[in-house]
């Protein structure tokens, strides 16, 4: 991870000090728009969400301090508890399946041969479509009214994939996510695969390693940073799932596919209680930041 810019002199060594200081100011000036956007629309809201979580904050009307009521109230929220479990279950299912599929696709298209370019494009193309559009697409695709899936799979029996039962609703969302995101993750994994020098494989083959041994002992260890990145993206994305359930299943049947972010939305704009919504946000945020920090830490230690 070379996230930090190497501190190297950007001025000729012979340049006089004053010019150097001048240049510093110019650099800061170029960075000013970034600083403004990041400060105003990221740092301030970040503080504000914590501040809001300590208040009774109705959508309309003046906020009043009520800490720690918003947090205390989270424990009694039945819907929230269902949503937490559902979101965790969904995250595990999606991460395992999506990772297996993406890695499989990446291995399949890693070597240049005839048709590989076309395959890569085909797998990646769904990622160019917006996720909300993709959700609507699947709503039609899986519908009994105009979709072909029911005719193919269910025969004459009527099945509502998206709202028939909790399992088919979850399954529909998972298939949608696999279709939409496999190509994108394949591309990231492909970058990692292609960064492994060919002579490492060559040497292993000369030593008589089997294909499986090469995969286990060379490919996977050398891919570790990329794998970690992809898993982080998948887990974070799944914990924040919204579009697919909002559009495809509407959280149903019986709130069985209501995700955490849907609960946040509901608290804020249906219950009109921004304070509680902020409190859920802060908890979710804390979990994700801790998770990401651990992930980064493990990654750093391993790559050293």
């Amino acid at each position: 991870m070379t996230l930090l810019a190497p501190a190297r002199p950007t001025v000729l060594p012979s340049a006089p000090p004053r010019r150097k200081r001048n240049k510093q100011w110019i650099g800061a000036l170029y960075a000013a728009p970034t600083a403004f956007v990041v400060g105003m629309f990221f740092v301030v809201p970040l503080g504000l969400v914590v501040w809001m979580s300590l208040h009774h904050w109705p959508l309309l009307g003046a906020p009043t301090l009520n800490a720690p009521e918003n947090y205390a109230g989270l424990g009694d929220d039945e819907l929230l508890r269902t949503a937490v479990w559902f979101t965790l279950k969904y995250t595990v299912v999606v991460t395992v399946l999506l990772f297996a599929l993406s890695f499989g696709l990446a291995l399949m298209v890693q070597h240049r041969r005839r048709g590989v370019g076309l395959l890569r494009t085909a797998f990646f193309l769904p990622a160019a479509v917006g996720f909300a559009s993709a959700s609507l697409l699947f709503l039609g695709l899986l519908s009994d009214e105009i979709g072909p899936v029911n005719d193919l799979l269910a025969g004459d029996a009527y099945v509502s994939w998206t709202s028939g039962s909790p399992n088919t609703a979850l399954g529909s969302a998972v298939v949608l996510v696999l279709w939409r995101f496999a190509g994108f993750n394949m591309l990231i994994l492909l970058t990692g695969l292609q960064a492994i020098p060919l002579d490492v494989y060559e040497a292993a083959r000369l030593d008589g390693a089997t294909r499986f041994q090469i995969f286990r002992r060379i490919t996977v260890p050398l891919m570790r940073p990329t794998i970690a990145l992809v898993l982080t993206l998948m887990i974070t994305g799944s914990l924040l799932a919204f579009d697919q359930f909002w559009i495809l299943t509407r959280g149903g049947p019986d709130n069985s596919t209501t995700s955490l972010v849907m609960v946040i939305y509901r608290e804020a704009f249906i219950e009109l209680d921004l304070g509680s919504a902020a409190a859920i946000s802060v908890v979710l945020l804390g979990v994700l930041v801790v998770f990401n920090a651990i992930q980064l830490g493990v990654l750093r230690r391993r790559s050293q």
């Binding site: 990041v38 629309f41 990221f42 301030v44 809201p45 970040l46 504000l48 969400v49 809001m52 904050w57 974070t236 914990l239 924040l240 919204f242 972010v261 946040i264 804020a268 921004l274 919504a277 902020a278 946000s281 802060v282 979710l284 945020l285 994700l288 930041v289 990401n292």
Partner: peptide, 16 residues
Amino acid sequence: ILMVPYATILIALYVL
């Protein structure tokens, strides 16, 4: 910004 999922700060952005 990547580490802080944006769904969590949109409530605050709405107020801001």
